[in-house]
Design a protein around this nucleic acid. Structure first.
Length: 913
RNA sequence: GGGAGUUUAGCUCAGUUGGUUUAGAGCACUUGCCUUACAAGCAAGGGGUCACUGGUUCAAAUCCUGUAACUCCCACCA
C-alpha cells in the first residue's frame, strides 16, 4: 500500500465533514443519557468568520466532541443574530448605493429589502464554521428573528411589562446621530480625545457697578471686568451648546465666585439672560468654577435642570444638526457649528482664551466614527434593579463559575451599579415593540399585548375602546432577544416545561469573549433566573482577544487579520485549530502569529507518517519465529507506553476540569510526538525487512487507536482519517468498506486514566537518560550512530537497577551489550546517569584533555550543588524547623552529590594515571 | 478618579496551599545527520541574578510593603 509522505488535509477534511453530516452524527435528541448542552454565541447573521470566531468555536468544538466521546448526549446549538443596528446600517448603505433612501420606503418595503439582504448574505458564517469542523447540530440552527425566537421576545416583553419591569419614559439617553437611534449605555465606548477648552465671557446682566470690589477681592473673589462691564468666565469643551444654556452654576462654597450670587448673566452671542444658580455638584477646581448649564444636552446638566426647575431647550435635531429651537446656526452640523461659533465668539470679543485639553468622548460601538449625543427622549426601559438582585447570587455563590475567576469582580461591580436598560431602538430591522397607542378621552393610553388582536381585546376590556390603534414604530435592542437564547432555542418561553427545555436546560459551558459580559452573559443569567428559576449555564469560559503578533487588535483597517478560510486551506483546519489552542490560555489575550499553525500542520503530518510506518509493518506469521529477546523487549515497551498514556491522561483530565485546554493539548502533543513516535515506535520498530510479532503489532495499533481518540477533540479530521486506516488494517476490502461506511471515531469512548506503575516510568526515564548519554557521547566525539559500541555500567557493591529496559537501551543507542562491572574501565569515556557511572570503550584515541575538562566541569557543578545543600543542612534551624520529609530529602541530595563527586574524582584520577 | 490584571529563556507561556536536585515546556536558535515513517524530519546541545526594592521565614519565582512599566474594565469633572 502506497501512502503519500505528506498529509493532505484538504481532501480528507471535506470527506469526513460530509460523512459526519450524512450520518447525522451531530444531531441530538433527548434520551436517557446525561445531556451536555452548549449554545453558540450567535454571530451576526451577515458577518464573516474572523479569528475571534475561530478561537471561540474551536474551543466549543473541543469541549463538545470530548463530552460526546465521554458518553454525554452532546448538543451544540448553532444560530445567528439579527444584529439590528449593524445589519440595518448595511442594508441602508446598500440601498443608498442603488439610489434608494430608507425613508422613501415604507416599513414593509424596507423589511423586504432587509430580508432579501439577510437571505443573500446570511449564514455564510455558518458555512465557514463547517470548514473548521464545528460539530453543531445544524438541524437546530436558529435565528434571533425567526418565528419561534420572535414569539419568545414578544411574550417576554409583554410579561415584563405586566410585571411592571418594563416602562416607557422620557429620559436622557445616548443618541447615535448617524444611525438615528437610541443606544443603551453599554453600547457607548469612551475614547480619549485631544480637544480644546474654550473660556467664554458671560457678562452680568444686572450689575453695572460693583461697590467694594476691593473687599470682595480680599475675601477671595476673582472679579472680571472690562470696558463692557463685569463678566464671569465659563470653561467648556462644547461651545456650540450655548444656544441651549438656561443657567450658569457655581458652587455655593466657592469663595472666588461669591460675587456672582443671585445675579443673572447673558449667554454670549445668544443674548439670553439666565440666572446664576448654586449647586454643590460644581467642581470649584475645574476651569473657573463656573459651569454653563444646558439641560437638554448633558446628563449632569439635565439633573441640575431638574433640581433647579430650569427650562430645557433642545437645540439639536436627531441627525446632530442645529434645530429651529436655536436662535442661531440653524441647520448647521454640530461640529461645523463648534468651529464657527468659536470664530464668532472670538470676533465678538467674547472668548477669553482657548486651551488644549484632553477629554473622553463617547462613541457608538456600532458606528465608531459617530460621537454619541446625550439626548432627552421618550424610550422604553427595563427596570434593572430586580434583575441585578436575581443575577448576582448565582455567580457569587459559585453556581456559575467564571474562568478566569477575575471576571467575577467585574460582574459584581456592574450589577451593583446597574442602570436601567434602554431597549427601544429607532430602527425597523428587529423585533417591533408590541405596544399599541390609543386615545381615550383625549389622553394617550398604551396597550401592550402579544399581537394586535389581543391588544384590541385588552383595549376594549380595559378602556372600552374599539377605535384606531397605532403600533409603536420602534424595534427592540438586539440583546433583548439574545438574552433569551439558551431558553428560546429550546422553546422554553413559548412552551414552558416542554420536553426539550426540561432536558437540555441548563446548558453546561458558555464560551465567549469578555467584552460581552454585560451585554450578554449577565443578561442571560437574569433571563434564566427570571424565566427558568435556574442558571442558563454552569461555567463561563472567557476567551482572550485575538491580537496580532505585535499585540495589536485585529481589525479590518489595520489589515492585520488573516483570513481564516485561507489559513485553513494553507495549514488544514486541524493545523489552525491546534495553532489557536496552543496560544490560548483562558482569559489571556492571544498574540496570534500564523506560523503557529505550521506546528499544527507538522503535527498532523507526524501522525500521518506514524500511520505510514505502522501500516507498512509485516506481521510475523505463525511459523515465522521472532527473536524471543526482541519480543520480550517489545513487551516492556508496550507496558511502558500503557503506563505513560495512563499518566498523561490523568493530567489531561485535570486540565479539562480547569479548562486549561492549551495545556491539555500540549500534553497530548508530547504524548503522541515524544513518547509514542520518538520513543515507543523506535523501541518496537523491527529491523528493515524483518517482521514484527503479532502481540506487539496489535498492541501498537491499539495504542495508536487510543491516541487518536484522545486527540480527536482537538484535531477531528486527521484523527478520523487515521483511526479509519487503523480499523481497517488487515481487513479485506469488503470488511474495510463496511467499517468505513458505518463507523466514526466521533462516537467512540474516550479513554480514561487508569492506575499506572510509577516505578516502571522511573525505570524508563533512567533508560532514556542512558540512551541519551550514549548518543551525546557519540555526538560530541564525532562517532557515527552506525558504529556499534559497548556499554559498561558500574553499579558498585552489587547494587543493580532493574534491567528490563536493557535490550531497549541497546537497540536505541546501538550498543551490542550492557555489562555490569565494579570499579573503573580503562580506555573508556564515561558519563553519569544519576549516581551511576557508565563507561564506553572507544577504539580511537581518547582526547584526555577534553575528557578531563568535561569531568572537571561536572565536578564543579556537583560541588556547587553540594555546597547549596550543605548550607541548609548545616543550619540547625533548618534541621530542627523543616518537616522531616524535607530534611530527609536534603540528606538524600547530599548523599547523592557526595557519591557523584567521589565518582567524578575517581574518574579524574584514573584519567591522570 | 476607582478597580482588576500582567511582568519567569529570543518569542508565547506553565510553575497548584512556600520545600523534589542552583526554575520547566513549546516554538525559535546552535551543532551533527537526506539513518528504508516523517528534512513539515532525526539526534544532541546552548540559553533565565524569576521587573525592581525592602521585609517575613530554617527556606521565597511563590507570602507581605513599596516602586516602575504595560494591559483591561468601570466612573457625570464641564
Amino acid at each position: 500500500m502506497e501512502i503519500a509522505s505528506k498529509y493532505n488535509p484538504r481532501a480528507v477534511e471535506e470527506k469526513w465533514y460530509n460523512f459526519w453530516l450524512e450520518k447525522n452524527l451531530f444531531h441530538s435528541e433527548p434520551d436517557h443519557r446525561k445531556p451536555y448542552t452548549v449554545v453558540i454565541p450567535p454571530p451576526n447573521v451577515t458577518g464573516v468568520l474572523h479569528m475571534g470566531h475561530m478561537l471561540n468555536n474551536t474551543i466549543q468544538d473541543v469541549l463538545v466532541r470530548r463530552a460526546r466521546m465521554m458518553g454525554r448526549n452532546a448538543c451544540w446549538v448553532p444560530g445567528t443574530d439579527h444584529a439590528s443596528i449593524a445589519t440595518e446600517a448595511k442594508v441602508v448603505k446598500s440601498l443608498s448605493e442603488q439610489g434608494i433612501k430608507k425613508h422613501d420606503l415604507t416599513r414593509e418595503q424596507f423589511l423586504e429589502h432587509a430580508w432579501e439582504w439577510t437571505h443573500k448574505h446570511g449564514g455564510i458564517i455558518l458555512q465557514q464554521l463547517r470548514k473548521l469542523g464545528a460539530s453543531c447540530d445544524w438541524d437546530r440552527t436558529a435565528f434571533t428573528m425567526d418565528a419561534q425566537r420572535s414569539e419568545s421576545v414578544t411574550r417576554v416583553f409583554v410579561d415584563l411589562y405586566n410585571k411592571g419591569l418594563i416602562y416607557r419614559g422620557m429620559r436622557m439617553i445616548n443618541w447615535d446621530p448617524k444611525a438615528l437611534t437610541a443606544l443603551s449605555s453599554e453600547e457607548v465606548e469612551y475614547r480619549e480625545e485631544r480637544s480644546k477648552l474654550y473660556y467664554l465671557k458671560y457678562y452680568l446682566d444686572d450689575l453695572d457697578d460693583l461697590k467694594g470690589i476691593g473687599d470682595l477681592e480680599e475675601q477671595g473673589n476673582i472679579i472680571h471686568h472690562d470696558e463692557k462691564g463685569f463678566y464671569a468666565v465659563v470653561a467648556t469643551t462644547r461651545p456650540e451648546t450655548i444656544m441651549g444654556d438656561t443657567a450658569m452654576c457655581i458652587n455655593p462654597k466657592d469663595s472666588k465666585n461669591q460675587w456672582l450670587r443671585g445675579h443673572h448673566v447673558i449667554v454670549p452671542l445668544v443674548g439670553r439672560v439666565v440666572p446664576v444658580i448654586e449647586d454643590r455638584y460644581v467642581d470649584t477646581e475645574f476651569g473657573t468654577g463656573c459651569l454653563k448649564v444646558t439641560p437638554a444636552h448633558d446628563v449632569n446638566d439635565y439633573n441640575l435642570g431638574k433640581t433647579h426647575g430650569l427650562e430645557t431647550i433642545d437645540i439639536f435635531n436627531a441627525d446632530g444638526t442645529v434645530s429651529g429651537q436655536s436662535p442661531l446656526y440653524v441647520g448647521m452640523d454640530r461640529f461645523v457649528c463648534r468651529k464657527q461659533i468659536a470664530k464668532d465668539l472670538e470676533a465678538a470679543g467674547l472668548m477669553e482664551k482657548v486651551e488644549d485639553y484632553t477629554n473622553k468622548v463617547g462613541y457608538s460601538q456600532r458606528n465608531p466614527d459617530t460621537a454619541i449625543e446625550p439626548r432627552l427622549s421618550l424610550q422604553w426601559f427595563v427596570s434593572m434593579q430586580h434583575f441585578a438582585d436575581i443575577a448576582l447570587p448565582p455567580v457569587m455563590e459559585g453556581r456559575i463559575k467564571f474562568y478566569p475567576e477575575k471576571y467575577k469582580n467585574t460582574y459584581r461591580q456592574w450589577l451593583e451599579n446597574i442602570q436601567d436598560w434602554c431597549i427601544s431602538r429607532q430602527l425597523w430591522w428587529g423585533h417591533r415593540i408590541p405596544a399599541w397607542y390609543i386615545e381615550v378621552d383625549g389622553k394617550e393610553e398604551i396597550v401592550v399585548a402579544v399581537n394586535e388582536e389581543e391588544a384590541r381585546r385588552i383595549a376594549k376590556e380595559k378602556y372600552g375602546y374599539a377605535g384606531e390603534m397605532r403600533q409603536d414604530e420602534d424595534a427592540l435592542d438586539t440583546w433583548f432577544s439574545s438574552w433569551l437564547w439558551p431558553i428560546s432555542l429550546f422553546d422554553g418561553i413559548n412552551n414552558p416545561g416542554n420536553k426539550e427545555i426540561s432536558y437540555y436546560y441548563p446548558t453546561v459551558d458558555l464560551i465567549t469573549a469578555p467584552d460581552i459580559i454585560f451585554f450578554w452573559v449577565a443578561r442571560m443569567i437574569m433571563a434564566g433566573e427570571e424565566y427558568m428559576h435556574d442558571v442558563p449555564f454552569h461555567n463561563v469560559y472567557f476567551t482572550g482577544v485575538v491580537r496580532d503578533k505585535l499585540g495589536r487588535k485585529m481589525s479590518k483597517s489595520l489589515g492585520n487579520s488573516p483570513d481564516p478560510i485561507q489559513l485553513m486551506e494553507q495549514y488544514g483546519a486541524d493545523g489552525v485549530r491546534m495553532g489557536m489552542l496552543l496560544t490560548a490560555p483562558a482569559g489571556n489575550d492571544i498574540l496570534f502569529d500564523e506560523k503557529i499553525c505550521e506546528q499544527g500542520r507538522n503535527f498532523s503530518n507526524k501522525l500521518w507518517n506514524a500511520l505510514r510506518l505502522v501500516s507498512g509493518w509485516r506481521v510475523a506469521s505463525g511459523e515465522e519465529a521472532v527473536d524471543s529477546s526482541t519480543s520480550q523487549a517489545n513487551e516492556v515497551a508496550v507496558q511502558w507506553m500503557e503506563q505513560r498514556m495512563a499518566q498523561v491522561l490523568e493530567g489531561v483530565e485535570k486540565d479539562f476540569e480547569q479548562y486549561r485546554l492549551s495545556e491539555a493539548l500540549m500534553s497530548c502533543y508530547k504524548l503522541a510526538w515524544d513518547d509514542f513516535c520518538s520513543w515507543y515506535l523506535e523501541m518496537v520498530k523491527p529491523a528493515f525487512g524483518t517482521p514484527i510479532d503479532k502481540d506487539t503489532f496489535d498492541a501498537t495499533v491499539s495504542i495508536f487507536n487510543r491516541l487518536m481518540l484522545i486527540l480527536h477533540p482537538f484535531m477531528p479530521f486527521v484523527t478520523e482519517e487515521i483511526w479509519h486506516a487503523l480499523q481497517t488494517i488487515g481487513k479485506d476490502d469488503e470488511a474495510a468498506a463496511f467499517i468505513n461506511a458505518n463507523y466514526s471515531i466521533m462516537n467512540q469512548h474516550m479513554p480514561t486514566s487508569v492506575f499506572y506503575d510509577q516505578r516502571m516510568l522511573d525505570d524508563c526515564d533512567t533508560a532514556r537518560e542512558m540512551i541519551a548519554g550514549v548518543r551525546n557521547l557519540r555526538n560530541s566525539r564525532g562517532i557515527s550512530p552506525k558504529e556499534m559500541l559497548e556499554l559498561y555500567v558500574s553499579c558498585g557493591e552489587g547494587k543493580r537497577t532493574d534491567s528490563r529496559f536493557d535490550p531497549i537501551v541497546c537497540k536505541l543507542s546501538n550498543v551490542s551489550r550492557i555489562a555490569y562491572i565494579d570499579g573503573k574501565m580503562d580506555g573508556c569515556v564515561s558519563f553519569m546517569v544519576g549516581t551511576t557511572e557508565c563507561f564506553v570503550p572507544l577504539k580511537q584515541n581518547i582526547d584526555v584533555d577534553a575528557e578531563r575538562k568535561k569531568l572537571e566541569d561536572e565536578l564543579r557543578y556537583a560541588e556547587g550543588f553540594l555546597a547549596s545543600v550543605m548550607k541548609k543542612l548545616d543550619n540547625e534551624k533548618f534541621v530542627n524547623g523543616a518537616p522531616e520529609k524535607v530534611v530527609a530529602l536534603e540528606r538524600q541530595k547530599k548523599a547523592d552529590a557526595e557519591q557523584k563527586i567521589a565518582a567524578l574524582r575517581g574518574q579524574l584520577e584514573h584519567l591522570n594515571s
